[in-house]
Computed example of a mutant assay.
Amino acid sequence: MIKEQPDHDNLPDKAPVLVFDSGIGGLTVLRELRVWLPDRRFVYVADDAGFPYGDWEEEALCDRIIKLFDRLLAEHKPAIVVIACNTASTLVLDDLRAAFPFMKFVGTVPAIKPAAERTRSGLVSVLATPGTVRRAYTHDLIQSFASKCHVKLVGANLLATLAEAHIRGERIDEAQVLEQITPCFVEEDGRRTDIVVLACTHYPFLANVFRKIAPWPVDWLDPAEAIARRTISLLQESEGQGENGKMRENSDHPHDVAEFTSGKPDFAIRRLLQGFGLQFDHIDG
């Protein structure tokens, strides 16, 4: 069903940017967005009741996300929505745009194009969830932008969960992490993989672990800055505003909130939210 367009004339100044993810990986994107949009309010929504998305059947997950956004858009009336989740973006972004044509959505898709432009060896790997690896969207990106490269798709079935544990401050088994990332490292005719695309927003939280245990140095490509720039571009189009400068140190965001569909993030997550300057709220998922 096509939703009615909200009355933007009655919205408060600088309506918030809504950042959505299946868990807390999207905080890497929120962090970058704040650098470029220091005066903007943010609402961070984690569908932790549905995490991990990789375990869902595609049709059921699509239905869940559409229904969730029907409520979120009415409640928060955001200026723009950032889907800070590769799995959700590659699955449901087109459906969200069709269901809510009045809203601008910025997706998070594997950074295959910039990887193809930067690689010197021609060997690129995409480290993603199994769902992102399967999607036709991902394969179309390779065909469109990296046809002259050897691109290896690596579906890591445990890495998002390991990242969530790491973010909580739990000890993780580095041998298990190494097992997940090792397929990314390819040697062929004297050449080696030189770029690994981080195609899940949870993975940048493990970047230091990756660098420590990787078989050889590579460029771990985080798409957060590109997402932030695209968000700014769309806001400029809709609001006619100039680009904001870099964020001041210790900049405060007292009106930013985080909502979890479970309504019950654990103590470690609550502390993490405080560190990001987010006040906890919840929705019923």
Rank of each mutant, 00 (worst) to 15 (best):
G25W: 05
R191F: 13
P101R: 09
V45Q: 02
I269E: 03
E170R: 12
E188C: 03
F20Q: 02
A258I: 03
A116G: 08
P38W: 13
Y53T: 00
E58Y: 05
K113P: 10
G169Q: 07
T119H: 03
V106F: 03
E59A: 13
G131D: 00
T87L: 01
Q241M: 15
D55I: 13
A79D: 07
A156D: 08
A163N: 01
A46N: 05
D173I: 11
S22R: 02
P12G: 14
C149M: 15
C184S: 11
D219N: 04
V124W: 00
A115E: 03
H282Y: 05
L123I: 12
G190Y: 08
G275C: 10
Q143F: 11
A226S: 05
D63A: 15
P183R: 12
Q180L: 11
T201V: 09
P78G: 00
R271L: 12
T261S: 15
D95L: 06
V186P: 01
K104N: 11
G25I: 03
L68G: 15
A60Q: 14
K67S: 15
F69D: 04
V196M: 03
I65Q: 04
E179C: 12
D95E: 10
I80S: 07
L127F: 11
F276G: 00
N157Q: 12
L153I: 09
T129V: 11
T132K: 08
V196S: 03
A49Y: 13
W220I: 15
E174Q: 10
A116S: 15
D281K: 13
A128Y: 11
M103W: 02
L235W: 01
I195K: 01
F69T: 01
E170C: 06
I80H: 06
R71I: 15
P6D: 07
V151H: 00
A156M: 08
I167W: 01
R40W: 14
T90H: 06
E239I: 09
G240E: 06
P101V: 15
D140P: 02
K152S: 15
D266H: 13
A128P: 04
P223S: 13
G23W: 10
P38R: 00
H282C: 04
T182P: 01
D281I: 05
E59W: 10
L159S: 03
S125G: 08
E225A: 04
N208I: 00
L30H: 01
V126N: 02
T119Q: 12
L235D: 01
M1I: 13
S89A: 12
I195R: 01
P217R: 08
M1W: 08
T129L: 13
A98E: 13
A15S: 07
T129P: 06
Q143C: 11
E117R: 14
F100G: 02
V133W: 02
K3S: 12
V186R: 10
F20L: 11
L61Q: 10
C200R: 07
D252T: 14
I2Y: 01
R191E: 13
I65D: 03
R64N: 07
P52F: 07
A160T: 14
D173A: 08
S125E: 04
